[in-house]
Each structure stands twice: as structure tokens, then as C-alpha cells.
Amino acid sequence: MYEGVVQNLIDELGLLPGVGPKSAQRIAFHVLAADPADVKRLAHALLEVKEKVRFCRICGNVAAEDECRICRDPRRDPQVICVVEESKDVVAIEKTREFRGRYHVLGGAISPIDGIGPDDLKIRELMARLADGQVTELILATDPNLEGEATATYLARLVKPMGLKVTRLASGLPVGGDLEYADEVTLGRAFEGRRLLDV
């Protein structure tokens, strides 16, 4: 055990995800040894992120203003909405540079066993966005696990009567993997979603 303030810092750092008591101690001593200006910058960044960041009024993504960068961008196609679980998923899709539409962040997936139902997600907000008739395609990009699939099924059923084109991201073999190591479920999905090779 260390003197009060140092122990306080170790305890606080230990609450962060993936940081155990040993790592917390290492980070704390790094902070102690670091230049005061660097530490101030870190403290300022921590405070600023809590003060300035909020959730986009339209899509629920993290934003520095009332609306996020993507919702404000007039070059993004307003006819296509891609539904994801978390803001992290927006970043992952943005990195592909394949998608030019807009997003909707649900804030999780339906998981009755954890007590999370459709009411706990931003589904009401999504329905409100779809109501004006401008959107023509809804891409369901929830995680390819059980909760994500159930959420996609629920959404597809909910928007079916609106006559939109509803699509789901493909599941299959990871690029750079070995076929023999693929599990039966993934390989089965890859067969189901095989495409015509037009050469």
C-alpha cells in the first residue's frame, strides 16, 4: 500500500477496462515520473471528453456537437441507413470506405437474459427517421452473434410493412483464413450466401 494520493490514483486506474492492479500501479508510476505538462494535457483531455462529447440528436453516434460529423455531411447519401449496435461499429465500417450512406446507433442489442428489450434501444428514434419516406434501404449491421441476429430479425419484421429494401450484412469466411478451420455454422452461412463468379 502506498501513501494516500498515490493509492487513490492506482485504485481509480484499476477501475478502467483491461487494467489490473499491477498495470494500474505501472501507469501510476509512469504518471508520477512524467513531465507535468504531459500529465496536465491528459487530465484536460479526460475532462474535455466528458464535457464536450454527447450523442448525435439524429443517429445516436458520439458527437462533439448537436449532430455528428456524418449526419452534418451533405455528401452522405440520406437514402441509405446502416443500423449498428455501438459507435465503435461506425468506426469499423468507416474504415472500409465502402459505405457512403448514414448510420443509426442502437446502443446495444436485444438480450432478454440480460433484461435488455427493444424498449431499451434507440428503435423508436429509428422508426421516427424512417417515417418521412426519404430512406429507401436499411442495412442491418448488428453483430453476427445470437443477440445481433435476433435484433436484426426484430427490426426487419418491424419495418417490413414500410416497403423498404432491408438488407443484412453477409456472414462467411474471414479473408486470410483457412477453410478447414471454419466452424460449421459459419461455413454453412458461407454456402448459403455464395455468389456467382462472373469472369
Binding site: I113, L146, G177, D183, E184, V185
Partner: peptide, 11 residues
Amino acid sequence: TMSRFGARLEP
């Protein structure tokens, strides 16, 4: 995503 048995251990 590269896990060899992730999909097998779903509820």
C-alpha cells in the same frame, strides 16, 4: 472474428 469456435458457443 478469426476465432475457430466462437460461433459454436452461442446460446
